[in-house]
């Protein structure tokens, strides 16, 4: 007590200490380890040695450019789709939900009660060639007689969109929910039609939620491999699939580590550009 009194300015750091310690042990140390690994050469049988093997990075970029590009493409499309679905959903719950609000929110997070893997496997069944969706689409002629959904980029993007929708919807909901409804009345009082009031007041005030939602969706989606593995074919594989197989199947640890770093670097760069474009003010409200 008296120690804290004398060193009052230490208090914030002491409060931060557990979190910093956790981050240090479980984030920074493994990251350092990964960096070290990414510069090794050798193989599982003869062992790995640290040789400043920058070539790993070069191989990662040159050998898997297509996978990188596809990852960001899928992630971007899924993020946009999730935004288009989530915004009206969140808007409706926030402003029209009334006493059903909490129940409706529960529905949004309900998928989380089942693990990610099982949910995606369920989609595999739903979209399967013998499944009901494909049969109906074939019957009404939207799909050709041997057209399919599974193992297409459509299925992968749809899977990612579905799996990350709550991460988009919840932050948007929060930013809309905390908005003062009288501001919309004020806008209408000042000759703004319903639509103008939305564009000039509601939308700008919900931007922090939109920005948070797009980041929470795009970042994990770019590194995802489950959807491409279960719902796509090898032609739809993303960089996550490559990293996963190099780590767990081919035991090419240095190459996998180097790819992870490239992925991380590109995502960081994109987030930085995005934050600059929308203004960091939007991130903090």
């Amino acid at each position: 007590m008296s120690f804290l009194h004398r060193h009052r300015n230490l208090t914030p750091y002491l409060l931060l200490a557990p979190g910093l310690l956790y981050l240090g042990i479980f984030f920074v140390v493994p990251l350092g380890f990964l960096l070290h690994q990414s510069l090794q050469s050798g193989n599982f049988d003869v062992g790995y040695a640290f040789t400043w093997a920058w070539g790993n990075y070069w191989d990662a970029i040159r050998g898997y450019r297509g996978h990188f590009i596809r990852s960001f493409e899928y992630a971007a499309i899924a993020t946009v789709l999730a935004l288009l679905f989530s915004y009206p959903l969140a808007y409706w719950i926030a402003f029209r939900g009334g006493r059903w609000k909490n129940l409706l929110l529960l529905f949004i997070v309900a998928p989380f009660f089942v693990t990610y893997l099982i949910r995606t496997l369920a989609w595999e069944t739903i979209l399967a060639d013998q499944g009901p969706v494909v049969r109906v689409l074939r019957d009404i002629g939207i799909l050709g007689q041997d057209g399919r959904l599974l193992a297409t980029s459509f299925a992968v993007v749809a899977g990612i969109t579905y799996n990350f929708l709550p991460f988009m919807a919840l932050p948007i909901y929060v930013s809309l929910e905390q908005m003062d409804g009288r501001l919309i009345e004020a806008a209408q009082d000042l000759y703004a039609s319903k639509w103008k009031a939305f564009v000039r007041v509601t939308l700008p005030l919900s931007l922090p939620g939109v920005v948070a939602g797009t980041l929470l969706t795009f970042i994990p989606a770019a590194g995802d491999f489950i959807n491409a593995q279960l719902l796509g074919s090898p032609r739809n594989h993303m960089i996550g699939n490559v990293i996963q197989s190099k780590f767990l199947e081919l035991t090419d640890y240095p190459a996998a580590a180097a790819m992870s770093f490239v992925l991380m670097a590109v995502i960081l760069l994109m987030v930085a550009l995005y934050a600059r474009a929308v203004g960091t003010e939007k991130l903090t409200g």
Binding site: D180, R182, A186, Q188, D189, A192, V201, L205
Partner: peptide, 20 residues
């Protein structure tokens, strides 16, 4: 007639200024 078509303006009790 909706509010935005009336030639009337309101000063709200809470001010309701646009924070952004």
């Amino acid at each position: 007639l909706p509010a935005y078509k009336r030639d009337v303006n309101t000063v709200f009790q809470s001010y309701a200024l646009f924070p952004h």
